[in-house]
Design a protein around this nucleic acid. Structure first.
Length: 730
DNA sequence: TTAATCACTTAGTACTACTCAA
DNA sequence: TTGAGTAGTACTAAGTGATTAA
């Protein structure tokens, strides 16, 4: 048990007294500093305003008042201090506390007054500024820009800024970023924004050549169908079948609509298109006004306050009803994803916070309200179709998302240090007598070398049939001796992965052994699951799992590619060329992780056009070359006039250089476009590559960070921006 | 021990606003 | 000035991995 002796008590008393003295001193200092700042700011502001006599008088009067006020305050303070000194210790302590509180409140009040005063001044100054500018305009416009700029600078107060939430500098960051850790003590938000009601348009459907007006319920489903017009869903069998099933269910009894093929939705589709055009044709002002109106309406919902700090939310708008657009061969695509009502929503909020009202849905109520401070969601709701619940959480720019994200890159960085021992381990294990161990080692090899996802089990009746490493089937592999494996399967989002790799001889032999005697639809790694692999990884690092390998691989590859940059040639390169170098590195990562995108509609056509343009440029160059020869032989004058060619050899040479450069630029452009036609660079940038590597590279070669990180990415990684050019991912 | 659930990250698509060359 | 192409962003589907329940 802890004990306290007399000496300790004395020490404590002394310390306490010292502390109190210090606090008093600090309070006084703070007050003085406040006053000084106030005075200075006021002086500056007022000087900047106009400087005319009337204003000065006001200022003088104001100062007089302020001085009187100051004196009074000082007098009050002195009196209190004297009085306090005379009082007994206990009373004095109480009194001190009370005084401190009072002082705090006074300071707060003064601050508010100051802010109000400054805001008033700003309003005044704005008026004066306007007046001033008009006056100046009539008087030869004497440097109006300068005086106005000054006003702007001086009139900014703390009112104009929100303190930066430097969550990455918090000492408890590493702990609070972990899953299951306490996220908040106080937590409030305004609930969710429900999707607007469907508004019937009464545009008929044409059935078998006849116009049929549908009841609102059926019209709504039919109208959703027109939203997939022009997309691949329109012609997909599962989608059509499921839509028809949904549509039939809402048709009135005895409806003559019996056959999907006889349904013509074109009038509705035209109506949708007309509405879209109407929106597109709005004037700039109309668009801006609507944007501002929407922003005002949604602002209320878009932030939460976590431990007193404002944090941006992500998907606070609930998903509107629509036909489900599952990827690949998802068995449920085309079915209706129903509207979400408050009765399907559970809110998570601080115990002492006000439970937000259900806005726009009179008579409805939240399903439940909970106070879970170990999770990062503000609400969860049942999906209107799938048997899962979805979460409403914070934006990627928030601290709550940023903290674990930052830890993710540190985890991948720690993997760099132990990857050697992991490789030694699995290379030893791949010859084990135990099949499960051999499979574990071989699967780890694929995850390590090819950055494959781990590949969990899936319910193919509810989801599309896609696979990852552990769920690979015999049909997905082809083996070519001595040691090449061809992979061809549909991965996440039904994106096709094709790759032919020369693997280690032992890996080749193992895979050959695993698939021997198995049917095409049987699993290659039938003795292991993702959980087994993750358990194995825990032997090397407490928080290592299969997905860390992808982060590690992406970051390592990026750094490796960027290291190829020859700094000695830096001065010869433009920002465009530097950007291209970076994007090439980024592309290597995207290819490794198999990040794809659909080829844009006009790609082939655009490429054809570019090829023609390239030919034209080539011809121009040839023509110039011939022209130069003729000029040198003294024959070219007539042709030069007809074709607008330069009149002398020097001019022609100069023109030739220009055309050559243009051709080079054009060809590079074509190559890049072709190389990027199905490669998506953004996914690895946002999710996989350690941002510090990019920041360091940009600083090293003097490439503007905005060229590689758009605003959203920059605000997602504020913690990475201050790293130096010497940062290394190792 | 296995399956189900929960909580989170990763992913491509669709749309809009912006940019730049013709 | 226009229109094609691109960048940026909102949206939401589809993964992973830890925890809980059976």
């Amino acid at each position: 048990m802890e004990t306290t002796n007399g000496h300790d008590k004395k020490d404590k008393k002394e310390k306490k007294e010292k502390k109190e003295k210090k606090e008093k001193k600090d309070d006084k200092k703070a007050e003085e500093a406040d006053e000084k700042e106030k005075k200075e700011k006021k002086e500056k502001t007022e000087t900047a305003e106009t400087g005319d006599a009337a204003k000065k008088e006001k200022k003088d009067k104001g100062e007089e008042k302020k001085e009187k006020k100051d004196k009074k305050e000082k007098k009050d303070k002195k009196e209190k201090k004297d009085k306090a000194n005379k009082e007994p210790k206990e009373k004095k302590d109480k009194k001190d506390k009370k005084d401190k509180k009072e002082r705090r409140e006074k300071r707060k009040l003064r601050k508010e007054q100051k802010l109000k005063q400054l805001a008033d001044q700003r309003k005044k100054a704005h008026k004066i500024g306007l007046k001033g500018s008009k006056m100046l305009a009539s008087k030869k416009r004497k440097a109006p820009a300068q005086s106005q700029t000054e006003l702007k600078v001086l009139l900014k107060t703390e009112d104009d800024y929100e303190p930066v939430n430097r969550w990455w500098e918090r000492e408890d960051g590493a702990e609070s970023g972990k899953r299951g850790a306490k996220k908040w003590d106080t937590f409030e938000h305004h609930g969710l924004l429900f999707a607007p009601d469907y508004e019937p348009h009464r545009v008929p459907l044409i059935y078998d050549g006849e116009r049929v007006e549908l009841p609102p319920e059926a019209e709504e489903i039919a109208y959703y169908w027109t939203s997939v017009k022009g997309t691949p869903y329109e012609t997909k069998d599962i989608f059509m079948k499921n839509f028809w099933k949904t549509f039939k269910e809402v048709l009135p009894k005895g409806s003559k609509i019996k056959d999907f093929k006889k349904c013509d939705f074109s009038l509705m589709a035209d109506y949708r298109e007309a509405e879209r055009q109407k929106r597109l044709n709005r004037t700039k002002e109309e668009k801006e006004a609507e944007k501002a109106k929407n922003a005002k309406e949604t602002e209320w919902f878009s932030y939460a306050i976590v431990n007193g700090v404002r944090e941006k939310l992500g998907n606070y708008k609930l998903e509107p009803p629509q036909l489900f657009r599952g990827r690949g061969e998802h068995p449920k695509q085309g079915l209706l994803k129903k509207r979400t009502f408050p009765e399907s929503v559970t809110l998570n909020i601080g115990e002492t916070a006000c439970v937000p009202k259900v806005v726009g849905m009179p008579g409805h109520a939240w399903r439940d309200v909970v106070h879970e401070n170990t999770v990062q969601w503000i609400a969860n709701f049942e999906d209107g179709l799938l048997t899962e619940s979805k979460y409403v959480s914070f934006a990627a720019t928030s601290g709550l998302k940023g903290q674990p994200d930052m830890l993710k890159y540190d985890r991948a960085k720690r993997l760099v240090r132990i990857i050697g021992s992991i490789r030694t381990s699995y290379e030893k294990m791949w010859t084990s007598r135990n099949v499960a161990d051999r499979q574990k080692a071989t699967a780890t090899y694929f995850i390590d070398k090819l950055a494959l996802r781990v590949g969990g089990e899936k319910d193919t009746e509810e989801e599309a049939d896609t696979v990852g490493c552990c769920s690979l089937r015999v049909e997905h592999l082809k083996l070519t001796p001595p040691q090449t494996i061809h992979l061809d399967f549909l991965g996440k989002d039904s994106i096709r992965y094709t790759n032919s790799v020369e693997v280690a001889k032992q890996v080749f032999d193992n895979v050959q052994g695993f698939i021997k005697g198995k049917k095409q639809e049987e699993q290659v790694f039938d003795k292991i699951s993702p959980a087994d692999l993750n358990e194995y990884f825990k032997n090397f690092m407490e928080d290592l799992s299969a997905k860390v390998f992808r982060t590690y691989n992406a970051s390592y590859t990026l750094q490796d590619e960027l290291n190829k940059f020859d700094v000695s040639k830096r001065s010869q390169l433009s920002q465009e060329q530097l950007l291209q170098f970076y994007n090439d590195a980024n592309r290597q990562v995207a290819i490794l992780c198999n990040h794809q995108k659909a080829e844009s509609k006009g790609h082939a056509q655009a490429m054809e056009k570019m090829k023609l343009q390239a030919k034209e440029i080539e011809q121009t160059y040839k023509r110039l070359k011939t022209h130069l020869h003729r000029l040198q032989e003294g024959k070219a004058s007539k042709e030069a006039e007809g074709q607008k060619l330069p009149k002398d050899a020097e001019g022609t040479k100069k023109k030739m250089m220009e055309v050559k450069l243009r051709l080079h630029k054009h060809r590079t452009n074509m190559e890049t476009r072709e190389a990027n036609k199905t490669v998506s660079l953004g996914t690895s940038k946002v999710n996989y590559m350690d941002p510090r590597i990019t920041v360091a590279f940009c600083k090293k070669v003097d490439l503007a960070i905005e060229r590689v990180f758009p605003k959203t990415v920059r605000t997602k990684f504020p913690w990475a921006m201050h790293f130096k050019s010497t940062y290394v991912f190792e």
